[in-house]
Each structure stands twice: as structure tokens, then as C-alpha cells.
């Protein structure tokens, strides 16, 4: 780990101001909530910040508030707190489960909701200091010629990372919004618009600028008759990212689908929503055949690499299972 200076901040405003100052001075600065993810990058010297702006010392950013409109989740809420929240468990059990699928109990006790959404990729080339890849300012994505068993099958190029978050697909499927504080003030945008594909920017996973901070996640109250699922396929039952995951929310009424969300994790550089599959489901009664057809549509256009062809079948199977379970 490279020596760095830690700055505890007391307010969002102070944090934004500091980040602006460091950016102006061309200093390498990073914000840290739980720190469980960023520390890993620092230990292998992929991240070598001069300054760490510690958000954990900001009071009042750790909360889950519930009202008629839904839930508001403070950025510093830990994954464990989200997982164990009674209201969330009651109304949005699958969101609690998605939080519980992340990492390990120890990491969930430290890792924050905002941190989970802002994770850097867990691509082994990105996490290797000796591979100066596209995402770190290099020329190539090493996965193309290398071992790409865990890489993107859809939405990739020129970088083929997959977004590692378990929460993101579930929150996108719930039409969640994200609140961001920055030099120009605060803004709230749909979470879906928060993530950026490598075609837009191969070095970033989201729209955050150097002095922007996530402050809150807003989850609308579930609609009547809606049911959500989060399924995660993995090689190890703890401390393992999704090979493929799927989050579905299906709102049914009078024996047919009124509205649906299908979002895949582990297959694309961003949480991968598939509107065509959602469109197909609308107005249909879901049976195994319909679920299978929706799964086919969801993976339409997937372009696997040499080692990750299996992800297509796996993703289809998960979508099919989630949809069948939704009715």
C-alpha cells in the first residue's frame, strides 16, 4: 500500500469542497465509505491515492426511512443494515436478499449501500497492478486475448468488465433513484442512468465526477400485485461475485403481466436491463414457455467470448426460473 493521508470530513459540503480542491491541485483523491472494496485496490497498488476522504465521519448519512412513497436509504447505510431492515424485509424481501448475497458477513457489516453501487470492477486484469489495462489508462482490455470466463457477454467493448454489484440489478429493477451531491449542488436521477457503458467511458463505471458523492438511494413503494426476485449464480457461496445474476419485478393483475422489469447482473459492464423482454411479457400470462421465450429475448444479441459461452445458458435459466417464480 502506498502511503496516503486520511481526511475525516464532517459534512457532504466539506467533502465536495475538499474533492474540488484536490482535483484543482491535480492530487489523487478518493472517497471511502466502508472502505472494504477500495482498500483491496490500495493493497495491490492499483489505487495509489494521495488523500482518502473518509465519509464515515459525516453524521446523518446512515438511515433507512420509510413513507408512503417508499424507502430512502442513506449512502452510509451498511449492506447488513439494509439486509436486516424489518420494513425492507416485509415489503421488498428480494432487495434484502440481494444485499445479503453480497460478499461476506464481515464485509456486509462494513460495506455501504453507496459503496456497493460504486464498486470498481473485479476483473482480474483490472485488479492486477502489472496489467495496465484500458480501464486504467492503458491501450487494451486484456480479457479479449486472455482468460475471459467471467467477462461480459453483452454490452461490452472496448472494455469487457462486468458490473460486480448485487444491489444494482435489484435496485434498477425497482426503478430506484440515486441522489448525488457535487460542486453544482444536488441532483436526483434514475439509478439506471447512473451507470455508463465502456462505449461512453471505458475508464469509469458511472457518471460521478471527481467531486461528486452519492448521498441517498430512493426506492419507490412496490406497486400492488408486484413480486420481485433476485437470483445469483456463483461458484462459492460466500465472498464471490455473481457469475450471472438476475433481478425481476413482475406486476400482475387479472392473470396477466401488467408491467415487468428484467435486469441481469454479471453479464455486462452495467446492470443490464432488457426492455425487449419486459415488453414481451406485458399482457401475457407467464407460464414456462413464456418465461423461456422472455429468457431467449433477454439474451438476444449476446456475443460471448471464448471462455464465457456458458453464461448465455446460465442467464437464460435464471431468467426463466425467476419469471416462473414471479407468478
Amino acid at each position: 500500500m502506498k502511503t496516503f493521508e486520511n481526511v475525516d470530513v464532517k459534512s457532504v459540503k466539506e467533502a465536495v469542497g475538499l474533492l474540488q480542491k484536490f482535483a484543482g491541485e491535480k492530487k489523487n483523491a478518493a472517497v471511502v465509505g466502508g472502505g472494504s472494496e477500495y482498500l483491496q485496490l490500495m493493497k495491490v497498488r492499483v489505487a495509489t491515492p494521495d488523500y482518502i476522504v473518509n465519509l464515515k465521519t459525516i453524521p446523518g448519512l446512515n438511515y433507512i426511512k420509510e413513507d408512503a412513497g417508499g424507502f430512502r436509504i442513506g449512502a452510509l447505510t451498511t449492506l447488513a443494515e439494509l439486509e436486516e431492515h424489518k420494513g425492507v424485509q416485509e415489503k421488498l424481501l428480494f432487495l434484502s436478499q440481494a444485499a445479503g448475497e453480497a460478499a461476506s458477513p464481515q464485509i456486509r457489516n462494513a460495506g455501504t449501500v453507496a459503496g456497493n453501487l460504486c464498486q470498481r470492477p473485479f476483473c482480474w486484469y483490472f485488479r492486477s497492478a502489472s496489467h495496465v489495462c484500458l480501464r486504467k489508462g492503458g491501450e487494451i482490455c486484456y480479457s479479449v486475448a486472455g482468460d475471459n470466463r467471467y467477462h461480459a457477454i453483452i454490452g461490452g467493448g472496448p472494455s469487457y468488465i462486468v458490473h460486480p454489484s448485487d444491489l444494482a440489478p435489484a435496485l434498477v429493477a425497482l426503478d430506484a433513484k440515486i441522489k448525488i451531491a457535487g460542486p453544482a449542488g444536488e441532483k436526483t436521477i434514475p439509478l439506471e442512468k447512473f451507470f455508463v457503458t465502456p462505449q461512453v467511458n471505458a475508464r469509469r463505471e458511472n457518471i460521478l465526477g471527481p467531486a461528486d458523492i452519492v448521498t441517498e438511494i430512493q426506492v419507490p413503494a412496490p406497486k400492488t400485485g408486484s413480486k420481485g426476485f433476485y437470483y445469483k449464480a456463483r461458484e462459492r457461496q460466500a465472498w464471490d461475485h455473481a457469475i450471472v445474476s438476475v433481478a425481476t419485478v413482475v406486476q400482475s393483475g387479472s392473470g396477466a403481466v401488467r408491467d415487468a422489469r428484467v435486469v441481469l447482473g454479471g453479464v455486462a459492464p452495467i446492470p443490464w436491463r432488457v426492455p425487449k423482454a419486459e415488453e414481451f411479457l406485458r399482457g401475457k400470462a407467464i407460464d414456462d414457455a413464456a418465461a423461456q421465450k422472455a429468457a431467449e429475448i433477454a439474451l438476444d444479441g449476446a456475443r460471448p467470448m471464448k471462455d464465457n459461452v456458458y453464461k448465455i445458458d446460465l442467464a437464460k435459466n435464471l431468467v426463466r426460473q425467476a419469471l416462473v417464480a414471479s407468478v
Binding site: 486475448a145 482468460d147 462459492r236
Partner: peptide, 25 residues
């Protein structure tokens, strides 16, 4: 232990990526 062919470099030399079993396995 995976050795990346083009760079001859081990790419999963840690507990996370080597996927050493946990109690749940």
C-alpha cells in the same frame, strides 16, 4: 492457479479469486 497465456502472469493469486472454500461449501 490461473496463468494468463498472453502475459504469462498469474491472475488469481489471492483468497478472493482463488476461491478457497468457505464454511458454506
Amino acid at each position: 492457479l490461473l496463468i494468463d497465456r498472453p502475459t504469462a502472469t498469474p491472475i488469481n493469486p489471492n483468497y478472493r479469486d482463488a476461491k478457497v472454500p468457505t464454511h458454506l461449501e
